[in-house]
Simulated scan of single mutants.
Amino acid sequence: MKQVYSNIKTIPKKSIRINAENIQAVGNGICVLLKLSSGVYGHVPDLLLEASAKDRIEEILETKSNMAWIGRMENLLLIERAIETLPFLGLHKENKTKMICLCAKHFENVAGILSIENSSVSIGDVKKLVLCDYAVGILPKIRFREENEMESLALSLIFCDRNAEISKTKNNSIWVGKVGSLRLVGHAIQTLPKLRIHEENVMEELVLSVSYEHIT
Rank of each mutant, 00 (worst) to 15 (best):
S15V: 07
R17T: 03
A20N: 08
E21G: 06
N22R: 11
I23V: 03
V26M: 09
I30H: 02
I30T: 01
C31K: 01
V32R: 00
L34N: 07
L34F: 05
K35R: 10
S37W: 04
S38V: 07
G39Q: 04
V40D: 04
V40E: 09
V44A: 02
D46E: 09
D46C: 05
A51E: 02
S52Q: 15
S52D: 15
E59W: 07
I60G: 09
L61E: 10
E62V: 10
E62P: 13
T63Q: 09
T63W: 01
T63F: 03
T63D: 14
K64E: 15
A68Q: 11
I70G: 05
I70A: 04
G71I: 08
N75K: 06
L76Q: 07
L76K: 08
L77N: 10
L77P: 00
L78D: 05
I79S: 07
E84S: 09
T85D: 12
P87K: 09
L89P: 04
H92V: 08
K93M: 05
N95Y: 01
N95C: 15
T97P: 09
T97L: 13
K98Y: 01
I100N: 05
F107G: 04
E108H: 12
A111R: 13
G112T: 10
L114Y: 13
I116K: 15
E117L: 14
S119C: 10
S120A: 14
V121M: 12
S122N: 05
I123D: 04
V126S: 03
K127I: 03
L129H: 02
V130A: 02
D133P: 00
Y134C: 08
A135H: 03
G137C: 00
L139W: 01
L139P: 13
K141T: 06
I142W: 01
F144W: 02
L155D: 02
L157N: 12
I158H: 13
I158E: 14
F159Q: 14
R162Q: 14
